[in-house]
Each structure stands twice: as structure tokens, then as C-alpha cells.
Amino acid sequence: MEGFNVLFVDDEVDFLETLLKRMKKRQLNAFGVNSGEDALAYLKDHVVDIVVMDVRMPGMDGIETLRKIKKTNPLLEVIMLTGHACLEIAREGMEVGAFDYLMKPINIDELLYKLQDAFKKKSIQMEKIKHLEEVMISSKLPQSDD
């Protein structure tokens, strides 16, 4: 699968750094920020395909950030990765539209698979939209000619 951009959001600086290093070693375009607020700011002016985000963070928590991301950027896939095993919060996250809710500690390969699966989902959606646009353009053209 060709390269894609992943933003990691976690307030634990050490954890984040290690994860970024390991991801970059696996040829992934990985970036990191430490809070929900920073994530939203980052998304404003960077191209990101997938966000991997902690749930419990000081300031804006993961679920709230997820809500905001899904509102402005519904095609972006978000994976929750957390040390907080709680059924209710997990369901809330899934209902808001998270791609998955994973628990730390995570096997690095498993995380990589998840990223690939999420990216594939996103690509298919993008393709659908591309065709949709083509259909809309082609259906418009004859009308304007009239």
C-alpha cells in the first residue's frame, strides 16, 4: 500500500516519541501532537489520512476531539488507542464514528494492519466520491449546452 499520512495524538510524550520512531521505521509518514487542541490545529493546514488518538488527555479529551474532527472532516478515519479500558467510552467513540478502539499496550503489527484497513476504507470512499463528481459533471454538461 502506498504511503499515507498518520497523525498520532497522545499526551504521554515518551510513548508518543517511541511510537513515532517505530512507525517511521516502517515507512509510514507519521506525525505527532500532544493534545486534542493541537490535533485540530494541525489538521487545518496539513494533509492527514488517519488519526490515532488517546482518549484521556488534559484539555479537550479524545472523544470530544473525535466529534470535532468528524464534523469538519468526515472522511478522515480516526483510531482510538488508549490505556482506558471502559466499555461505555469505547461504545461512545464507536458511535461517534471511530474506526476502531484499541487498547494499550498494542502489538505494533496489529496497529499497522488497522492503519492499512482504515486507509483502504478511506480510499474506497474517495474513489466513490470521485466517480460521483464525474457523474455530476457529465450530467450537467449537456444541460448547460441546451
Binding site: 479500558a85 466499555l87 478502539y101
Partner: peptide, 17 residues
């Protein structure tokens, strides 16, 4: 206990998916 909690949450999330 965290094993119990993570396992239950993980199963729940995957069933939901």
C-alpha cells in the same frame, strides 16, 4: 483486573464493529 477490563472492552468493541 486490567486484563479483565481490556478483554471485555476489546470484545465489546469488536462485536460492535
Amino acid at each position: 483486573m486490567s486484563f479483565v477490563r481490556s478483554s471485555a472492552t476489546s470484545i465489546s468493541v469488536n462485536v460492535f464493529r
